[in-house]
Amino acid sequence: MNTTQILFWFLSGLALVSALMVLLSKNPIHSILWLILVFFSISGHYILLNAQFLAIVNLIVYAGAIMVLFLFVVMLMNLSKEKEDQKNVWMKLSGIIAGGCFLVSTCNVIFNAQVVSKELAGKTALLKEGSIGLIGPLGKALFNDYVVPFEISSVLFLSAMVGAVVIGKKD
């Protein structure tokens, strides 16, 4: 076992354990803190894949900004009472369907990974090879090959911002 393999298994174990703890903790604040740990271990995986930009952006956006907002909401709503109200059946059913769809697509990606990317076949890490996760190639890909989807997604964000302002202005 070499260093990258040790790191890989350590990070995978950490990610799985903390993801389980997200579901199992009674206190929503603890769940959020475990979720932050999940993001950290996933960022570690990105670094093992030589995708430093993705790793750090994952930390800034998800662990740094979105989770802080989660913490804000949970702290202000004071959910720490450990009470759970039962959701209705339709909510549960739609949750199961959405989760199932995600599971199917994830499995598809995992089982086809060796077909799609030859560099990854039979490896745990890509150190010093493969450059799509670095900032230069990623920026070029986003602004040359995928510029239309990129701009459309930014319009989506703009509409979300406008929506937030409208909701905030109401009172």
């Binding site: 932050i36 430093q52 750090i56 952006v57 800034i60 740094g64 802080v68 900032i135």
Partner: peptide
Amino acid sequence: NIGILYIFAVVSMGIY
């Protein structure tokens, strides 16, 4: 090669 972004990530960890 992402030095400045690293600093941003760490600063946002400080908020926690």
